[in-house]
Simulated assay, not measured.
Amino acid sequence: MVLPEIVGRDAFAALIIRTDYADETAWQMIVAEVSQPSGAGGEYEARVHLVDDPVWAGSTPAAVRAAVRQDDQLSVVFVADRTTMQSAQHPLLALNISDEDKDLDPMYYQELIDSPPAQEFRTTPGAVHDVHANLSLANLDFDGFAEAALADSEGILRPL
């Protein structure tokens, strides 16, 4: 199945795609949380582009990545999958969209080829805006966020 192209997304909006439709209440809680202003005093408006279309139901991370790769303004996509919906903390799956490591020359980049960077991690809805903003501005890299998530006892990135 070919997934639809995401249209109308503001480049400053975090993209969140719902792939699990088992719990509407959980989804509404996630939407409410990612819609809250971010920053220490809530000084930043929440900008999100929500994809709530059953055509995405059951999509794998690889399928989601492939479907959104055309958006050259996008560095990360957040997925509300089964794990997200079933967990009390609703940790979204953050997927790295960058494919800059795709055609590395083994002569110069063998270490990177042997130990590829992280491609995904879990994040609470409250940390989505920090992740999206910092990756969009290239303030931090995806690996840094993935490492922070792995350092957590539950493997989840929490608000910075």
Rank of each mutant, 00 (worst) to 15 (best):
A13W: 03
P159N: 05
Q119E: 10
S98N: 04
A151C: 10
I17C: 06
V2A: 14
P159G: 03
A11S: 13
A94H: 08
T19H: 02
L3N: 01
I156A: 08
Q89E: 15
D23T: 00
A148M: 14
V128F: 08
M29C: 14
D152S: 08
Q110C: 09
D23N: 06
D143E: 14
A149M: 07
P91G: 06
V79A: 08
D10Q: 10
G126T: 01
L137R: 11
P37R: 07
S98K: 00
D99R: 14
S98Y: 03
P106N: 14
T60V: 04
P159M: 04
A22M: 11
G144S: 12
F145P: 02
A66G: 05
M1V: 14
A63K: 06
V128M: 11
I17Y: 00
D114A: 14
A32S: 14
A26S: 15
A13Q: 07
S98A: 09
K102G: 00
L140S: 05
S38E: 08
F78V: 08
G58D: 04
M85R: 12
D114M: 10
I30Y: 01
E147M: 12
E154S: 14
D10C: 09
G155C: 10
R158G: 08
W27V: 02
V77C: 02
P61V: 02
A22F: 06
V79N: 08
V64N: 01
W56I: 02
D20S: 11
A67G: 07
V76W: 04
E147R: 13
A67Y: 04
F78M: 09
E33R: 15
I17W: 00
P54I: 04
A138P: 00
A32D: 15
A66K: 09
A146S: 07
L50H: 03
A146V: 10
L137W: 10
S98Q: 02
N134I: 03
E111C: 11
I97E: 05
H90S: 11
I30S: 01
D141A: 00
A80G: 13
Q110D: 11
S38V: 08
Y108P: 12
P106T: 12
P106W: 13
F121Y: 06
A40I: 15
A149C: 06
D130K: 04
N96K: 13
L157E: 02
P106R: 15
I30W: 05
N139Q: 09
I16T: 07
D72M: 11
E5C: 04
L137Y: 10
A67H: 07
L15Q: 07
L50V: 15
V2K: 12
Q110H: 13
L74D: 01
Q110V: 14
T84V: 07
L15S: 05
P91H: 08
H90I: 09
N96H: 13
V55W: 08
Q73S: 12
M107S: 15
D105R: 15
A149W: 05
E43K: 05
V2R: 13
G144L: 10
V76C: 04
Q89Y: 11
L3W: 03
D143V: 07
G126I: 05
A149Q: 01
Q28I: 07
H132N: 14
F121N: 04
D10Y: 09
K102R: 15
G39Y: 04
P91L: 06
D130Q: 10
A149N: 05
V51R: 02
I6C: 01
W56D: 01
E100S: 12
A13Y: 08
D23W: 00
S38G: 15
E5M: 10
P54D: 05
